[in-house]
Write a protein that binds this DNA or RNA. Sequence first.
DNA 1: CCTACGATCTGCT
DNA 2: GCAGATCGTAGGG
Length: 178
Amino acid sequence: MTIAKELLGKVIVTNFNGVQTAGMITETEAYEGATDKACHAYGNRRTKRTETMFYNGGVAYVFLCYGIHHLFNVVTNISDVPHAVLIRAIEPLEGLEQMKKRRKNKKVGATFSNGPGTASQALGITVKHDKLDLTMSQIWIEDRGIGFSDAEILITKRIGIDYAEEDAELLYRFVKKS
DNA sequence: CCTACGATCTGCT
DNA sequence: GCAGATCGTAGGG
C-alpha cells in the first residue's frame, strides 16, 4: 500500500533488443491480495494466472484484460502474499519515437500513456514479460530522486472495479497532480 | 467441456 | 457518449 505511493515519480525502463524506452510513473493502484475483493488473488485464489502474484516481490505481473490490453503490475510482498501495484499511467521520458511507433504513431498528448493499457503498450510490455524479474535485463525501475509530497498526490477510489462491493470504496489509488 | 465476462481503449454516431 | 473489440481464465455443468 505505501509502496504504491512511493512508486509515484519512479522511472520504469524497458530495454528489448537494445531498444530502450522509459517513463515516469504518475498513477498507481494497490491490490491487497487475499483480503481485497478487487484483486485477482482474493481469498488466496491461486491459479495459473494469479500464480505470479504469489512470487516474492520485485517481479512483473502482466495479464491480458478484455482480450486486448496488457496491464503491468509490480509484485510487492514476500512469497505467498499476493500483493501487487498496478501501474496505471506514465509520463514518457526516453525513446519517444519508439513509443510512438508502438502506439501506432499517435501523437504524444493527454491520452498517449495515461491509462493502464496504453502505458504498458507504449513501453512495449506484453504478457510475454509476465513473471520477469525486475532486477534483470529487460525491465527495471529506477529511482531518479523524484518524489512527491502528500500535497502533490491525489488519493481516490480505484477504477473499473465496481464488482468488488465494499472494497471498491477503498482509497488505494494514487495520482500525481498535474 | 463450454460459456460468460473482465484492473480498458478506440472509433464512430 | 456509447458500443464493439477480442481472448484467456474461472467456474459451473
